[in-house]
Amino acid sequence: MRPFTFHPGPRLLAGPDQAEALAEKLPPGPCLLVTDADLVQLGITDAYRDAIGKDREIVVFDAVEADPSKETLLAATEAGRSAQVASVVGLGGGSPMDVAKLAAYLLGSGDELDEIWGVNIARGRRLPLALVPTTAGTGSEATPISVITCEGGVKLAVNSPPLIADWAVLDASLTLGLPKHVTAATGIDAIVHAVEAYTSARLKNPLSDALAREALRLLASNLQTAIEEPRNLEARSAMLLGAHLAGLAFANAPVAGVHALAYPLGGLHHLPHGLTNALMLRHVLAHNVEAARDHYAELAEIIEPDCAGQGSQARAALLIERLDELARNSGLALRLRDHGIAFEEAPRLAEEAMKQGRLLVNNPCEISQSDAQRLYEAAW
């Protein structure tokens, strides 16, 4: 076995109705709750707000948007600083959780944001932090990564162990009734995390592999049920656990080309992150197929065990086909043209994708700027 390093994720509270249990884990003193306005309006935050606010002041910052901006992050941090909060809770999808992670870090460490972009640069101490996902997709509650949209639509990230939360809550009751398109996009996002972690070129290791495989099994076998039966708690629980395991996997074996090419679609066109991954999934996997053939073949057996007797090339091709079917059957529109993106934008998108060097270095094979342009054109 070659040497490897593995960072475990947060401690977990799993199961429905965990609000009181989470409140007991937080320190005394004011708490900053980072969420979004839609969740507040729908009442999804109520139980956690009530429980956390029972014995402490609670400061609600609900202005987080999709693909949160640097300005939003700094506003959340200032809200926490003004109230002298003692802890931070992020409740929502990946966007509120990413803002909560960095706000907790900036409040606790006193570091300047523009000095900590990148990998393992943030080394200070953050405030106590808990994360409560309301979608089964990003796995942000499991990772030390926060992605923020900066000037010009460029996505920058802080990736460092201090951003790992103290606690994460997997409460599938918060995901019941999610719209089909949200369930589909976030589910495909989680599947991409599992696949890219399993094939990560630099830091793939036995523990991340085991997590990625189990994540893919849970996600692939429950996504369609969760879409068709939005109040099926068993399927929702499996999806939430699968997304968390995929998050742990890619926190240690980072994602690669699919994400690198997805980010410009979100940054420039404000498409949901899970959808952008779905748009590029088939094309990037096809580009990688020879370099990652054996790994893709192994993953194919998780989705379709009957293929075990086939050769590696056939199994790898089958994986790409089955993942594409999952995305199509989820109801997502999978062409760039379906989302108002012109064919002529491919060169600019490719140029923007090259800025994601931290992701491209993890891909099983090189993706050059000309490769990226060709892949965007194929996805059009």
Rank of each mutant, 00 (worst) to 15 (best):
P3Y: 09
H7A: 13
A14D: 03
G15N: 06
Q18G: 08
P27M: 00
P28A: 10
G29T: 12
P30E: 07
C31E: 12
C31K: 00
D38Y: 13
D38A: 15
D46F: 00
D46N: 13
Y48K: 05
Y48T: 09
I52A: 02
G53D: 03
R56T: 15
E57I: 01
E57F: 04
V60P: 03
A63K: 14
D67K: 09
K70C: 08
A76G: 15
A76E: 04
A79R: 03
G80A: 12
S82W: 02
Q84K: 15
V89Q: 12
G90C: 02
S95P: 06
P96M: 07
D98H: 05
V99E: 08
L102Y: 05
A103I: 05
G110R: 10
E112Y: 05
L113D: 06
G118N: 02
G118T: 02
N120M: 14
N120S: 08
P128T: 02
L131K: 12
L131A: 10
V132R: 00
T134N: 09
A142S: 03
T143P: 04
K155F: 06
N159M: 14
P161E: 11
A165M: 03
A168S: 15
L170D: 03
D171W: 01
A172N: 01
T175P: 10
P179C: 14
P179F: 07
K180A: 15
V182W: 02
G187E: 10
D189L: 04
V195S: 03
Y198W: 06
Y198F: 10
T199C: 08
T199R: 04
A201W: 09
A201D: 03
R202H: 11
L203T: 14
N205F: 00
A210P: 05
L211S: 02
A212R: 13
A215R: 00
A215N: 00
N222K: 07
N222T: 13
T225M: 00
I227K: 13
E228C: 08
P230V: 09
R231W: 11
L233I: 12
E234L: 14
A235G: 09
L240V: 01
L241G: 03
L241E: 15
L248E: 06
A249Q: 07
F250W: 12
A251S: 12
A253N: 14
A256C: 04
G257E: 04
G257L: 04
L261R: 09
H269M: 04
H270G: 07
P272Q: 11
T276N: 10
R282D: 02
H283C: 02
V284I: 11
V289G: 00
E290S: 14
A292F: 05
D294I: 10
Y296F: 14
I302G: 15
I302F: 05
D306F: 07
D306K: 15
D306W: 12
G309L: 04
Q313H: 11
A314D: 15
A316H: 01
L323C: 06
D324C: 12
L326K: 05
R328M: 11
N329A: 15
N329F: 00
A333E: 15
L334M: 05
L334F: 01
R335E: 14
D338L: 04
G340Q: 04
I341A: 00
A342C: 09
P347D: 06
R348M: 13
A350V: 02
E351M: 08
A353Y: 03
K355G: 07
G357H: 13
L359T: 08
L360W: 12
L360Q: 06
L360R: 11
N362D: 12
C365Y: 01
D371A: 14
D371M: 06
A372M: 13
E377C: 01
E377L: 14
